[in-house]
Design a protein around this nucleic acid. Structure first.
Lengths: 224, 224, 224, 224
DNA sequence: TATGAATGAGAGTTCATTCAT
DNA sequence: TATGAATGAACTCTCATTCAT
């Protein structure tokens, strides 16, 4: 065994270790997500998470500062995922309004239906836990809100108008709609098989509201 | 002192005692509401509530089965209040759409702005506490939803159409919107001074969405 | 209405009141006995006793100093009853040994079978509660023990011997035997229908033991 | 350090840890036994046990599900001990009756005098605590009873007779005698120095009863 | 006498977190 | 890195007892 081999060996070992570390981190995170959703955050013990992830309690604390940190990192991962999903959707489609609707559809299909646990963490299990968690929730939604607000302003641009405040309020409103529809039909009830129709109804309503607001502003400006 | 007096006397005493009991009950409930909102439900100790209500810990348990029961009864009182407020609003105004908008305005003005703590309990502190609490949350929103769905169907009736499913989904969407706008601008930010404008924007959006949906259905039916 | 009448009236009223007081006292005592046996002393709340006796909590404390006092007075009543029952039995029968056996039979028939709750209080619910309660238990059994020891000494007298110490030990042994047989076949198992046979077996054993001891002593003394 | 060493090393460490765990478990159990006897089960706080065992409260709950479980495991350990002591005694001696008397003597000498705390737990502190504890008590005595019943049947065999029911009742009776004598002279009074004489008197009485019963049955059978 | 609302010390139990190995 | 036994502060809930009416 020459030096090169030794180096290679240790490199490979290091790589494997790194991979294993990442896997452990992920398995803990997934176990936590699962249990938080099934039993609720306050009713989930670190003990349980460790058992589900097949590691010792101490190991959880090696990867996460504390229980709250576990939730925060979970939220961050979820936020990353949802933004990545929506980001792509916002780029597909020809017209701004089309892109907008694509994003809406994608939210229900690719996020809510595909990752119900992530939805539950974001809308239920991270609510009212701690000021820190609540702040993270807010900042996540703030960023999503900015994306949507930008999209709305783009649509507005098509109509030759610009109203940042209205765009923001409407963005918040649309966000709330999407959240509540998902909560109602996926968390409270399980109507996942009807999500197609539900999505259509909700998006029709949103498009209607959006266009109507734009037309009114346009007319109002024209009437001046 | 004759028999009548004795009877009256004891009745009056009994009445006063009953009144005092009711007052104690209310003062505990109010203390709980205040602390749940300020510190969060899980961080509020029964001890604290007792101190704030100026009673002993045991007294809290005389009026409420346990901490969860305290929250549940609080939620019920809030649900009663919001339904009473919205119920009146739904009866004012000439046209269905007018009544609908009145209710929306009333929600922000008479409920959210007037009773921010109740808003916080309903939207934040009662989320994800216990299956029981979550079930109560659901049933409260279910009932509100039914009211709004009815109102939407009334509006639909004006247009000579009827679509229960659409009405329900739109009701959920509108509910979510109101909730999120309130959460965003009253709980996360304090923009209570701008609530007038925000309300106007949000209601315009809703009216637009609603009318648009109705026109589309009408046209679709006409086009057949 | 003359003075005599008034006096009579008040006397009668006083009598009635006295009677009612006594009834209340008894109903509380009986409720306590029942609940102590069914749920166990530590699991019985004063609240429950009051409810069962159809009086207010405060009323229980008018008749009894505290929960322990309730148990102590119950024990005293039971001790009174058992001594009265056994006392009569010890006087029936011609020979000492016959009287002795009558008492044994009576214990099972007239006490254990007739008053199972009293048996349970004495043998189970009053055990290991408090030093005071334990002391009362001891003094009750001490007195019973003295009675039995006397009876044994009387039997010994017939044989022309006297051994106080042996009499005492045998008395304790016989007492323990009766207790355990009752506990086994009436509290742990319900073999009340077979108590006749069980009683016979047990009494035969006792008589045998007793006579054997007496003969041995006699022979030993004769052998000197 | 080669592989063998590593293996040995880890094994030794694991063994030592296992031993320490067992020691902690025992020290908690002993502390509980001591305190239950000195203060009574209901008056003993987990806090106190922890302090006496020089561990934290949480450690008690690491080894025992709850306070009741602590008592149950204590009872099991005691039952194991008493059966092992009596089991040996039942095997010493030539004749069945001799073995029987050896067991009786051993009960007083090797169990009651040597382990008074175990006696107190079994006869006083575990009485009337909980249905579960009472059930365990019953099953422990049931098993002891079976042993004694078997021994009696063996004695009967010597006389050429067999009466299972009588054997069982007599076994219960003898058990009750032993218990009560121990309770009276070791728990209520401290006459441990006189236990020799007391044992002799009690065993004479038992032997007398036993032989008398056997003779009677024999005569009765002969008389047929 | 009788009532029952009010009291509050106290106990069992939990569980996030630590740290020696 | 990983382990898991150990920790102990914290919290909910109980219930015997009191006392103003």
């Amino acid at each position: 065994m020459d030096r090169q081999d030794l180096l290679q060996g240790s490199t490979l070992t290091a790589q494997r270790r790194q991979r294993e570390k990442e896997q452990r981190y992920q398995s803990i995170l997934q176990a936590a997500q699962h249990l938080f959703c099934e039993r609720g955050y306050p009713n989930t013990k670190i003990q349980d998470i460790a058992k589900a992830a097949e590691v010792a309690v101490g190991t959880v604390y090696f990867y996460f500062r504390n229980k709250e940190d576990l939730l925060l990192q979970l939220m961050d991962a979820i936020a990353l995922n949802i933004r990545s999903i929506l980001g792509q959707a916002f780029q597909s489609g020809k017209t701004p309004i089309e892109r907008f609707e694509n994003a809406g559809r994608t939210f229900f299909q690719e996020f809510c239906l595909a990752h119900p646990y992530q939805l539950i963490i974001l809308l239920r299990e991270s609510v009212g836990i701690t000021p820190e968690v609540e702040a993270r929730r807010r900042s996540i939604f703030e960023r999503l809100n900015q994306d949507v607000t930008s999209a709305i302003q783009e649509v507005m641009g098509e109509f030759g108008i610009s109203n940042g405040f209205a765009a923001e309020v409407i963005s918040v409103a649309i966000g709330g709609m999407m959240e509540k529809v998902a909560y109602q039909y996926l968390i409270w009830q399980d109507r996942s098989s009807e999500m197609d129709t539900i999505t259509k109804e909700a998006l029709a309503f949103i498009r209607g509201g959006l266009l109507s607001v734009l037309n009114n502003i346009t007319q109002a400006e024209a009437g001046r």
